[in-house]
Design a protein around this nucleic acid. Structure first.
Lengths: 206, 206
DNA sequence: CAAGCAAGTGAACACTGTTCAGATAATGGC
DNA sequence: GCCATTATCTGAACAGTGTTCACTTGCTTG
């Protein structure tokens, strides 16, 4: 049989992505196979290649949804107007850790996945990442004097990359290789020390 | 043919591990297959299962060698007696980043590899990790007042996990997703801010 | 020198992503 | 209403993966 038109192309895309996210969320990225997604949506494996260029493409779209979810979670944190910046930053961190905790496997998939060497991430994907970073950056901005926007942007990346170390070790179950602490303990300590550091230190030595 | 005794069991182990490291260093972990290692050492795939329990076991041994190499690289950094602790810490960081840079693929393999859910890392493996951390910890110790050994140990883990975020993004080529900076720029900035932070901040808030 | 044992083999199994010739249902033209 | 075209979907096939295990073979001991 062919040309069933039970579903439009967009519906198929949504169904496939929903199935993929469900499989990964429940069983991890290694359980995500073309045949399994196909079976879950009631189509054959070949059909997936009408929707996605290949498996990498499917995973990229899945990961994009994970990034969007994070942005929504961070955007939902209320921004206290005119107050001290630190409670807001701490609330963002809490939302960040909470989102990861509730989406462990999808979060793992986001970073476990490696783009094949020759291809690079599409522009719309980079945009989504930028939107998340801009939330963090605007939260840090009040801590820097005017004219230090460049340092703010850089330190946002430094802080995020550092946090990512903690969370990625956590979701991979590797934090226990080095400590008995949890990400919920380590991350606030990093934030605390980091904020103290930028308040006391010269803009940058390097 | 069988029972060739061209090589002893230990020789076979060394040959297999050398071959594995060479394959990974040149072509990445995904190129590491049982058939390829077997071919490289001139034996059949089945023979590998006389040496290692399975592929995971082989990778663990390979990763252990990578950790040992890092420990050696860090231990080779001269410890300046009676001097300020920061230059030593910075030298350690430099050695750390240098080792990773010279062993990118092996380093990636170290963290890309996931132990299957039911098994856990052997004790001797954890010991090797501990030996690396103790070098870092003793470098940080002079910055803490006596009686703060617990905080020193914790902050060592906080700092290392943070650094790991930077280096893991770097070796995965994902630093470019968030910044144009390199690990060689970001890591010293983190160290700078972190050290400033622990000097100025209260021991811990959490 | 014979018997037994240990080491090595490689075909086989169940799985993977991906391709593509072929089948088929919806559509456009008359 | 019907036929030709076209877009869609299928599923067998291919080359690869880790792992197993009946079998062969060479060494070693009695």
């Amino acid at each position: 049989m062919a040309r069933r038109s039970d579903h439009s192309r967009d519906e198929l895309y949504d169904m496939a992505l929903t199935a993929a996210r469900s499989i990964v969320a429940q069983h991890g990225l290694e359980a995500l196979t073309a045949r399994r997604v196909a079976q879950e949506i009631g189509y054959s494996p070949g059909t997936l290649y009408n929707i996605f260029h290949n498996q990498d493409d499917m995973i990229i779209h899945m990961n994009a949804a994970t990034i969007d979810g994070l942005r929504d979670a961070l955007a939902a944190v209320p921004l206290p107007i005119g107050e001290a910046p630190r409670p807001y930053i701490e609330a963002l961190l809490s939302a960040y850790l909470g989102y990861i905790e509730q989406n462990v496997e999808l979060w793992r998939a986001l970073f476990d996945f490696q783009l094949s060497a020759d291809t690079e991430a599409p522009a719309w994907y980079m945009d989504k990442i930028g939107r998340v970073l801009s939330i963090l950056s605007s939260a840090l901005a009040p801590l820097y004097p005017a004219g230090q926007e460049d340092q703010t942007a850089k330190d946002t990346r430094v802080l995020w990359a550092s946090l990512h170390g903690i969370t990625s070790l956590a979701v991979d179950g590797k934090l226990s290789f080095v400590t008995g602490m949890t990400a919920q303990e380590i991350a606030p300590r990093l934030l605390h020390v980091f904020l103290a550091g930028i308040s006391s230190a010269a803009p940058s030595k390097a």
